Each structure stands twice: as structure tokens, then as C-alpha cells.
Amino acid sequence: MTANPILLQKKYSRVIECFAKQQGLSLDAALDFLYHSQVYQLIRDGVSDMHCMSDEYLAEELRQEYIEKALGNYQ
């Protein structure tokens, strides 16, 4: 299932803001990370209706991916 592109843009902005606060990142850094993340690809492609998950859930998924990449454990 795919979501309305305008609604997805609003979703991304809320997730970016939440993720930036969690990690103490600038909005630009959080935006850059999101658009290069696996989470973004899953949301964009409509996999498992990820766009239906809460903003906090998606920010937490991003946080986990961010930590894995920082530790070098991400494929």
C-alpha cells in the first residue's frame, strides 16, 4: 500500500524532528540520515505499512539504525 505523497512528507518532517531531538542532531543532519536510511526505503516503498507506524516508533527505528551504523555493525 502506498500513502499520499503530501501526507508522507508531513510524516517525514515529524519523524525527522523527533529523531533529531532523540539524538541531539541538527534537523539537517537528521534529514540527511533519514534519506539515506533503510527505514526511509521501507516507508517510501510501502513495506509492511511502515508509514502507518507512529512517529515515535519510526524515530526509534532510525535511532537503532543510527547506532548500528555508528558502531559499524550495519550491512
Rank of each mutant, 00 (worst) to 15 (best):
Leu71Arg: 11
Gln64Pro: 00
Ala70Cys: 05
Gly24Lys: 10
Ala59Val: 06
Arg63Asn: 08
Gln22Val: 07
Lys21Tyr: 05
Leu8Val: 08
Phe33Leu: 07
Asp32Gln: 13
Cys18Gly: 01
Ser54Pro: 03
Tyr74Asp: 13
Arg14Lys: 14
Leu7Tyr: 14
Leu27Ser: 10
Met50Asp: 00
Leu8Pro: 00
Asp32Glu: 14
Tyr40Phe: 15
Lys11Cys: 04
Met53Leu: 14
Lys21Trp: 03
Leu34Asn: 01
Lys69Tyr: 10
Tyr74Gln: 14
Glu17Ser: 12
Ile6Phe: 15
Arg44Thr: 01
Ala20Pro: 01
Tyr66Val: 04
Phe19Tyr: 06
Cys18Phe: 03
Tyr35Lys: 11
Leu42Gly: 03
Met53Pro: 00
Ser13Pro: 01
Tyr66His: 11
Tyr40Glu: 13
Pro5Thr: 13
Tyr74Val: 08
Gln23Trp: 07
Val39Ile: 15
Asn73Phe: 15
Gln23Arg: 15
Lys21Gly: 01
Glu68Lys: 13
Leu34Ile: 07
Val39Trp: 00
Arg14Thr: 06
Ser37Asp: 04
Ser54Trp: 05
Leu34His: 02
Ile43Ser: 02
Ala30Pro: 02
Tyr40Thr: 02
Gln64Tyr: 06
Leu27Lys: 15
Gly24Tyr: 10
Tyr40Pro: 00
Ser37Arg: 04
Asp55Val: 15
Tyr40Leu: 04
Arg44Glu: 11
Ala70His: 10
Leu31Met: 06
Leu25Cys: 11
Gln64Thr: 11
Arg14Cys: 05
Ser48Met: 07
Ile67Glu: 12
Asp28Asn: 09
Ser37Glu: 06
Cys18Glu: 15
Met53Gln: 13
Leu58Asp: 01
Gln41Ser: 09
Lys11Thr: 05
Asp49His: 08
Met50Leu: 02
Gln22Asp: 13
Val39Asp: 01
Cys52Leu: 12
Leu58Glu: 01
Leu71His: 07
Met50Gly: 00
Val15Gly: 00
Cys52Lys: 12
Glu17Gly: 04
Leu27Ile: 15
Asn4Tyr: 14
Ser13Arg: 15
Ile67Phe: 12
Asp49Ser: 07
Tyr35Gln: 07
Ala29His: 08
Asp28Arg: 09
Met1Ala: 11
Gln64Val: 11
Tyr74Phe: 15
Ala30Lys: 01
Leu42Asn: 08
Ser54Tyr: 04
Phe33Cys: 04
Gln9Asn: 13
Gln9Leu: 12
Ser37Tyr: 06
Ile43Phe: 02
Leu25Asp: 06
Leu34Gly: 00
Ala70Asn: 08
Ala30Trp: 06
Ser37Val: 05
Cys18Val: 08
Asp49Val: 03
Gln23Lys: 15
Ile43Thr: 02
Asp49Thr: 03
Asp32Ile: 05
Tyr74Met: 14
Lys69Val: 07
Thr2Ala: 06
Tyr57Glu: 10
Met53Ser: 07
Asn4Trp: 13
Asn4Gln: 13
Val47Gly: 00
Gln75Trp: 07
Leu62Asp: 00
Pro5Met: 13
Cys52Ile: 04
Pro5Arg: 14
Lys11Gly: 04
Lys69Glu: 13
His36Pro: 00
Ile43Val: 15
Met50Ala: 04
Leu8His: 03
Leu25Gln: 08
Ala59Met: 03
Gln23Tyr: 07
Lys69Asn: 09
His51Thr: 02
Tyr40Gly: 01
Cys18Lys: 12
Gln64Met: 09
Gly24Thr: 06
Ile6Ser: 13
Leu25Met: 12
Leu27His: 13
Leu58Gln: 02
Glu60Pro: 01
Leu8Trp: 05
Glu17Leu: 09
Gln22Lys: 14
Tyr40Ala: 07
His51Phe: 14
Asn73Val: 11
